[in-house]
């Protein structure tokens, strides 16, 4: 449903975002410390420039795009599910789980076989996700789940702090740099796993659009409209967790995109209908992540928070949703 007077705004918004993300994609691929041209890239002569393009720049572009989609979609769907405009992909303790995995592998010397940081992050993120999902089945109230997620997060952060004390400086440095987030860690092999996780997560949330639109008015309201609340709540929780966990595994705990982007998208599109707001948020997330990824010299989380914090503050001060 596209509301009459809003049609122009929505089309213009999508056009603007597509234009911006195309521009940023081009810059990500072809500019930087080493400038590249088309001829360097498409003739596979095994040159350094060719390798830079296919092994560094393309994975970086894909990482930014997939992280943008996954964080924005999971952030928006969790904000809607919890009916809390300040919820985000990490409310269920996912980033804490990932950092515990990484801390165990880097600081405590638990090696997950011959797996690296990536796998430890994924194992940690999914372990916590399933713990919180398991707990969620025992609570009917979404608010309790929100509190449980946050508490589990704090508990795990405390465990991580214990591991940090007494770990050696070199390992600590790697751990801290993981925590700053980066789009540069995705390898060509990882792309397919990341992409598959994002597709599955988006499909799970995509088939729940009817639920997401109805749940805004509360669970009883949605039930009254014939929506299978229990089923779709689990689908959305699982999909959102999968998205957040995979992006945390491949790009580190990227702050703020998940919280801020749904609000940015609403300010742009002025509709709460998830048929439009979901793809709109995803595109907003892609644009923001691509833009942030261009600043290769600055830690990703620093640049994102510099944008994210003012947005969240704006949302709070303008009253619960950025209506304007």
């Amino acid at each position: 449903m596209i509301g009459g007077r809003n049609t122009f705004r929505i089309l213009a918004g999508f056009a603007l975002l597509l234009l911006l993300s195309a521009t940023f994609s081009y810059l990500t691929l072809f500019s930087g410390t080493v400038g590249l041209s088309w001829s360097d890239v498409f003739v596979d002569d095994g040159s350094v420039l060719n390798r830079i393009f296919w092994d560094l720049r393309v994975p970086r572009l894909v990482a930014a795009v997939l992280a943008g989609i996954s964080l924005a979609v999971s952030g928006l769907s969790l904000q809607t599910l919890f009916r809390n405009p300040l919820a985000g992909p990490f409310v269920l303790g996912i980033s804490s789980g990932a950092s515990l995995g990484v801390a165990l592998s880097l600081l405590a010397g638990f090696s997950f076989g011959h797996f690296g940081v990536l796998t430890s992050a994924a194992v940690g993120a999914f372990a916590v996700t399933f713990l919180v999902m398991f707990v969620s089945n025992h609570f009917r109230s979404s608010t309790v789940l929100l509190i449980v997620g946050l508490l589990v997060g704090y508990f795990i952060d405390a465990l991580v702090n214990l591991l940090i004390v007494g770990s050696d400086a070199e390992a600590l440095k790697v751990f801290v740099s993981w925590g700053m987030g980066s789009f540069c860690r995705l390898t060509s092999d990882g792309i397919w796993i990341f992409a598959l996780a994002v597709i599955v997560g988006c499909v799970l949330i995509g088939v729940s659009i009817r639920y997401l639109n109805a749940i805004r008015m509360g669970e009883d309201f949605a039930k009254g409209l014939g929506v299978n609340v229990r089923l779709y709540k689990n689908l959305v929780l699982f999909g959102a967790s999968l998205l957040a966990a995979s992006s945390t595994a491949f790009c580190g705990p990227v702050a703020f995109v998940g919280i801020a982007v749904p609000h940015l998208a609403f300010m742009l599109f002025k509709t709460g209908n998830h048929r439009l707001l979901l793809p709109g948020s995803a595109l907003c997330g892609v644009t923001l992540c691509l833009a942030a990824g261009l600043f290769t010299m600055v830690p990703l989380n620093a640049i994102l928070s510099l944008v994210g914090v003012p947005v969240v503050l704006l949302v709070i001060t303008r009253g619960r949703g950025g209506r304007g």
Binding site: G3, T80, P85, R216, T271, G272, G321, R323
Partner: peptide, 10 residues
């Protein structure tokens, strides 16, 4: 919170 974000028509 979502009353802010819904039009009458929606």
């Amino acid at each position: 919170a979502f009353f802010d974000r819904m039009t009458v028509r929606e």
